[in-house]
Design a protein around this nucleic acid. Structure first.
Lengths: 340, 340
DNA sequence: AGATTATTTGTAACCGGTTACACTTTCTTT
DNA sequence: AAAGAAAGTGTAACCGGTTACAAATAATCT
């Protein structure tokens, strides 16, 4: 019973304050001349009537909804949940609301989201997923939707990019393994189509290709997932039982590999040293704890959100590319071995 | 350059099809009489002009935005990221969009969110967080916002509730420990103010209170977090080195406890059997893997979303309470011990 | 056949804001 | 003092849909 949706409107406030709606709007938005006295009368009326401007109406009129969307592969992946948390925190501080979309790295889902979000007058979008072609970027541009992309480098689309030094990080990881005395270092790689996976593989290759004993068969796919890491480690040890070092393209695969190695009775780090990439929380939960190349995940998300909101507000003009540093975090899964 | 936001509107379509906007609207919504021929003319016009109705305008006019919000403590907690994923998947299938809000279990943040979301004409809300008083519920009711609550039992607010059998699950866990031969079973409890934590503690107490050797000091707080679990286990073993079984109120604390026990040189399950609660993925990543009382997390989220959308659409009338079963998953962190 | 009901469609108000434009009043400037 | 610029405010159109109401036509009922 009782009226539903009986909110007070800007016209109610205007009447109460004895001014026009335009004046109330001006007071709220502070973007035009308003007399001091008038302003305080209006503010009082707003107080008295407990008025809150309606975001939907405002969105229709101004085409700015104070909403951003984040498209990511899967919120259950701890890397992305941390990223999501960072974005949400930052957005909240700037009075923005966040819509999350899981794409599972499937282009059709992404396209669908882009379409749905455009109809909703989304102000901007953070894209942490896979496919994003020129056309999508142009469409969004045409709709006035700002864009910040993680780990992707579109050629001409004028959007900001936030990325980590993947090649460099991978090199650091492999060099670390080499410095420990590992002779036969394998790589569990992420999906071929993902640029981050490509770059980490590249770093591995760059470091190891010219060394004796290098064998392309030491690169096995692990799909960036735990189960993929398990399968990869199994296959690896089956065909190359003398592997003494593994660089996994992310921590999830490293954790999976660790599990598999344990099941096969291979001890880490004594027999095999293992290094991951990302620096997510679960890397500390395993036994032994995982050495990893840590990205500043929270910072990446926060930076992406800040950058995006800056562009939406027209504060930041030109799109920029930010490359964040990664850091080797040495833990128990890698250890100096005796030279044989 | 180029026009921004030059979308085709319903009036464009009406003109193209030679009908009025009302007719186009009727075709789109299918809620009124429309002549077959007229309808196909309109549909063709929609096709030709590549028309997509504007969600914001529709929201203003109808006060239905096709958006639901999920308020949860922290998306980085794997329990909640799985829940979030389930909600998003389900919502997407029903063409709803989801806004996520991290409350950190802080009432002020929750209140703020509720306010912000009301201004946005949210259709409904899934509440998986802590505080939610009668007043909030009434406010939302007054604004026509449907509500589904996880693990909370508001007295009169007419909202649906999804919950797990926490007391029963906790009993199962403790009985399991007892059946293994544990004599001194401790409990690492979640925050006092959370009903789930209370219930799990209750189950522990109900099972163990009347047994000889029961000691209230065996209940230590762990704040539902990994670090809390670490601290709790340390404190526990320091004062009660003869503890031989631990039931942790969630998996995160169990994982933390495991870590602490390992650092202290206490072997699991040989010296201490350890059981968690929730059934999140990381319970399988530890070494040894954690025995836990698994909740059907994904199902909880999916059910909550389905229930909510049902209520929004007016399909489900009365609010309902759903209690989901939990299941003991035996893994390596608990093992039968030799009777001494 | 006349009355009643079901179909079909259009007109225009409305949702609750923003803002272009016009107009008045109050400085500044020369 | 006259002219131009700045400050202050209101009117009304507009954003892009939904929907109450009215009116016309077709179908069904006594």
């Amino acid at each position: 019973m009782g009226d539903i949706h009986n909110m007070t409107t800007i016209r109610d406030v205007a009447r109460q304050a004895g001014v026009s709606v335009a004046t109330v709007s001006r007071v709220i938005n502070g973007n035009s001349y308003v007399n001091k006295d008038t302003e305080s009368r209006v503010r009082e009326a707003i107080q008295v009537m407990d008025y809150e401007p309606n975001t939907v109406a405002r969105g229709l009129a101004s085409k700015k909804t104070g909403t951003i969307a984040v498209i990511l592969p899967d919120i259950m992946n701890p890397f992305f949940s941390e990223l999501a948390r960072a974005v949400e925190d930052t957005a909240r501080h700037h009075k923005f609301t966040v819509i999350f979309c899981n794409s599972d790295d499937q282009a059709p889902k992404e396209k669908l989201y882009i379409q749905v979000l455009q109809q909703r007058y989304i102000d901007g979008m953070i894209f942490a997923s896979n496919t994003l072609d020129e056309e999508d970027i142009q469409t969004m541009r045409g709709h006035g939707i700002s864009l910040v992309v993680l780990d992707r480098a579109p050629r001409r689309g004028n959007c900001s990019i936030i990325r980590s030094k993947n090649v460099e990080g991978a090199k650091t990881a492999v060099q670390h393994l080499l410095s420990l005395g590992c002779r036969k270092i394998a790589h569990i790689a992420g999906p071929e189509e993902l640029i981050t996976a490509q770059e980490r593989k590249q770093g591995y290759l760059d470091t190891i290709r010219h060394l004796k004993g290098f064998d392309p068969a030491l690169i096995v796919p692990g799909h960036f997932s735990i189960s993929g890491g398990i399968g990869a480690a199994q296959a690896l040890l089956e065909y190359h039982p003398d592997v003494d070092g593994i660089f996994a393209g992310n921590d999830l695969m490293a954790a999976g590999a660790l599990k598999a190695l344990h099941r096969m009775g291979v001890s880490v780090p004594e027999q095999v040293s293992l290094c991951g990439f990302d620096g997510v929380a679960i890397a500390e939960m395993t036994e032994p704890e995982l050495t990893t190349v840590a990205q500043p995940i929270y910072e990446m998300g926060a930076t992406a959100a800040k950058r995006l909101i800056g562009r939406i507000r027209g504060e930041t003009e030109e799109p920029s590319v930010t490359e964040l540093d990664v850091q080797l975090v040495e833990r128990d899964s890698t250890k100096r071995r005796v030279r044989r």
